[in-house]
Simulated scan of single mutants.
Amino acid sequence: MLGCPFSIRTGPNMCVNYHTPTREQFGTLGAFSELPADWRWPDEVWKDYPAPIVRAGRDGGMDVCLASYGMVPRRHIPPGVKVFDTMNARAESIGERRSFAPAWRRLQLCAVPMTWFYEPCYESGRAVRHAIGMMDDRPFFVAGLWREWTEADGAIQTAFTQITINADTHPLMRRMHKPDDEKRSLVILPHEEVADWVACRDMDVARSFLRHYPAERMKAWAAPQTVAKKQEPSPNLSLF
Rank of each mutant, 00 (worst) to 15 (best):
A143S: 00
P73F: 03
L210A: 00
L2Q: 11
H130A: 00
P235H: 01
A51W: 05
E151I: 12
R23G: 09
P179I: 06
K47V: 15
K82W: 11
E92S: 13
N17R: 14
T28D: 07
V194I: 09
R23F: 12
D181G: 07
A206G: 02
L35H: 06
G61K: 03
A91D: 00
D43G: 12
P179W: 03
E44H: 09
P171R: 05
R105T: 13
W104C: 13
D43H: 13
E216F: 10
D202K: 02
R97S: 12
F6N: 14
V128D: 02
N13G: 14
P179A: 03
V128W: 03
P120C: 04
E151P: 12
A228L: 09
D48S: 13
T158W: 10
W39A: 03
E151F: 07
D85K: 08
Y213H: 06
W149L: 01
G3Y: 10
A37K: 13
T115F: 03
M218G: 03
G95I: 01
V72A: 09
C200G: 07
D38W: 08
F84K: 08
W39P: 06
E216D: 14
P233H: 04
G70L: 02
P42T: 07
D202N: 15
D137R: 14
Y213Q: 01
R55P: 04
R126G: 06
R23N: 09
V45E: 06
I53P: 00
M134H: 01
Q25N: 08
R90L: 08
V112P: 01
L107G: 02
D180T: 15
N166A: 12
A220S: 12
T28I: 12
G60Q: 00
R217K: 15
V198L: 05
C65H: 11
G11T: 07
R9L: 15
A206R: 00
P52Y: 05
G70Q: 00
A199M: 07
P73Y: 01
Q162L: 14
T10P: 04
V227A: 10
C4R: 15
S185M: 15
V45T: 13
E96S: 11
K183T: 04
S7W: 13
S33F: 12
E192R: 10
A195D: 03
P78G: 11
R217E: 14
Q231K: 15
G3S: 12
D38V: 11
S68A: 10
G27Q: 08
R207V: 01
P36N: 05
R138A: 10
F84E: 03
S208T: 03
P42A: 12
P171K: 08
M134N: 01
S68F: 02
E24C: 08
D168N: 10
S33T: 14
G154Q: 02
A195C: 05
Q225R: 14
R138N: 02
S33V: 09
A152I: 02
W46S: 15
C121G: 03
S99V: 04
M134Y: 00
